[in-house]
Design a protein around this nucleic acid. Structure first.
Lengths: 109, 109
DNA sequence: ACGCAGTTTCGATGATTGTCGAACATCCGA
DNA sequence: TCGGATGTTCGACAATCATCGAAACTGCGT
């Protein structure tokens, strides 16, 4: 196995069917994470460092972990970057209409 | 002013326009509170003690406060009871479709 | 007047959370 | 091979949270 195929932990994501609604709601109830999700809906895939949030890198990493473990985002390794994408289709399959409704509600501001 | 018109604190509720989405999502991300909201959608108004949750009375009171301050429920005094109702119409006005979508998603299991 | 039923407040406790800086790991380019 | 760029992990810390029991309060019956 090549050294690059496993970074630290294998980047565990919950299966679509295992996504828990309460975890999703909790993940979305933080302003930094909501900003990440909202940003991600516009663009298909983004590197971690390119989000318009003003927190330390380690804090951002923590938020990505919460979003990943809730099933909201998927991350994959790309060289020394980690690319992040919204699991829009999975979410739509699991909880139809949820993401759209929540993001529209947030835009209502 | 009659003694009964003010209990302890005046039971503050946010105005419909002031309801914050992040507060709502946070309030809904707890299983006990989600159960309360779900129970409340079936019945128009309920007394505090009649919810199918297994926590101490003081804990329940705390959850009602969180729900009330988030704008999800409205409470009014009725003799020595406190009656709780879902602010479904207000929620619908503020965040159209949100409550239905979330509760349907939760029922999806 | 007394006590009971229903609820809230208070104080405490243990768990979780958001945040940071420092250190570490990985990959790419010079 | 060395350095810089990109992210993560590791403590640590203060704040918030869910929970409880005990005490207090309110209104209704008796």
């Amino acid at each position: 196995m090549s050294r690059s195929s496993r970074r630290r932990t294998p980047l565990a994501h919950p299966a679509t069917g295992e996504i828990d609604l309460l975890d999703v709601l909790h993940a979305l109830s933080d302003p930094t994470r909501m900003t990440i999700v909202r940003t991600l809906r516009a663009e298909p895939e983004r590197a971690c460092g390119t989000f318009p949030v003003d927190v330390a890198a380690s804090t951002l990493s923590h938020h990505f972990k919460v979003l990943r473990e809730s099933g909201l985002i998927r991350q994959r390794e790309e060289a020394n970057r980690r690319l992040t994408a919204l699991r829009a289709a999975d979410l739509e399959e699991r909880f139809p209409g949820l993401l759209d409704t929540v993001l529209t509600a947030y835009a209502q501001g």
